[in-house]
Simulated assay, not measured.
Amino acid sequence: MTDHLTDPTTKHHAEPFPRQEQQPPGLTPAMSPQPDHGEHSYRGHERLAGRRALITGGDSGIGRAVAIAFAREGADVAISYLPAEQSDAEETARWVEDAGRRVELLPGDLREEQHCTDLVDRTCDALGGLDLLVLNAAHQRDRGGIDEIPSDDFDAVMRTNLYATVFLARAAVPRMPAGSSIITTSSIQGFDPSSRLVDYAMTKAALVAFTRALAEELGPRGIRVNSVAPGPIWTPLIPATGWPDKLPKFGQDTPLGRAGQPAELAGAYVYLASDDASYTSGAILPVTGGKPL
């Protein structure tokens, strides 16, 4: 009997994605097909009961899937996002509330140091503390060559992907008790970089070093630090990257033959956040469709 098994090559959309393009940061309703964030499939088991989480980029994509999963596991959730993503954030909040958990919406620009500091303060005030920090927000754009990278957009990538990570961790760590967990979102790009995502790949490699170094620092304090490294995942970041001609082949080069859906990463974040991973720190957990790091 094998009817209880799920073939991972056909579990989600495996056909070529249609050509489409959005301006950054990209919004979920404009995507075709719509991503799966686990809205109708994720089942919680109280593995995060009573926890309080701040998720950056929690409005859509991987962040929305994590927010839904955390809430169904019993955590209250604060969501950081850009003001332009308000409609997506409100949809995520609806799913968190549907799970019976508290949600706090915190719009603003992570490139601003004071906003990052305020995010931690506002999360602690709203949720009564902070013990899960998911550093997930990111910005990427297609690059034609090193001589074509605009300085202002290069700065946006660095500040969103790296500066904000440091700003938030610096503000959060003094507020986080033993047993807390920090999870970064790195990428397969940090190990197998694409020349057309050179600056994005630089930041993801740096996040690997950040994760491992911070895990060493915070281990004696009982705070674990880990990372999830996604492969090609169907989120608003993809049609907002500026490569409509590449979308029909997006994810087709993985051993599983398709792109991943945000819902397929949620379990990795839940594991790293939970006591099931009490002896796991400094780890980079790949969710790549079979591509090796």
Rank of each mutant, 00 (worst) to 15 (best):
H12V: 02
T254Q: 13
E90D: 12
G128P: 13
R111G: 15
T6C: 04
R52V: 01
C124N: 03
A209L: 11
R101P: 10
R221G: 01
T123R: 09
E148R: 09
T2I: 13
L265Q: 12
A137L: 07
R47F: 02
S87P: 03
R72M: 13
A283S: 14
G179C: 07
G38W: 10
G129H: 04
V134K: 06
S186F: 02
G260W: 14
S87K: 15
R258H: 08
P177S: 06
S80E: 15
E46W: 07
L218N: 01
G289D: 06
L110E: 01
Q252D: 04
R101W: 09
S87Q: 15
L48M: 06
E91M: 05
G267I: 01
L127P: 04
A14Y: 08
V77M: 12
F17H: 07
P220K: 12
M31D: 00
A138R: 00
D36A: 02
G222F: 07
I68W: 10
S41V: 05
A49W: 05
R122Y: 02
D253S: 12
I223R: 12
V208N: 14
S181H: 02
I146C: 01
S187H: 04
G38R: 09
R19S: 14
G190M: 11
P25Y: 05
L162K: 05
D155W: 07
K204Y: 14
R258S: 12
L265M: 11
T203R: 07
V120P: 09
A53T: 06
R258K: 01
H45R: 14
C116N: 09
P35Q: 10
E85Y: 02
R122E: 14
V166L: 09
G145P: 07
A268T: 12
S60L: 08
T117G: 14
G260L: 13
A84W: 06
R224C: 03
P292A: 03
R64K: 15
T184V: 06
A172T: 11
A65R: 02
K291G: 00
L110P: 00
H4Y: 15
A263M: 08
D152S: 07
G74R: 09
P255R: 11
R122K: 14
R47I: 05
I62F: 07
L168S: 03
E39N: 06
E46I: 00
P239W: 06
G26W: 01
G222A: 03
R221V: 00
G100A: 14
A205Y: 08
Q114R: 15
S87C: 04
H37N: 13
D142F: 14
G179Y: 11
D7H: 08
W95H: 12
T6W: 06
F210W: 13
P107M: 03
S32G: 00
A84D: 13
L162H: 03
K249E: 15
P18Q: 10
D121Y: 02
Y163I: 00
D3P: 04
A30S: 13
D88Y: 07
T235K: 05
G179A: 05
D109H: 14
H37M: 09
I284C: 08
A156W: 15
I233W: 11
R64V: 07
P236C: 11
Y279P: 00
L54N: 04
V134N: 06
P292R: 04
A138F: 03
A209Y: 09
E217C: 00
T184D: 02
A156D: 14
G267K: 09
S87V: 09
A266T: 08
E39R: 12
P230I: 10
E15M: 10
S180C: 08
K249N: 15
R221F: 00
F191L: 04
R19L: 15
D76M: 03
V120D: 08
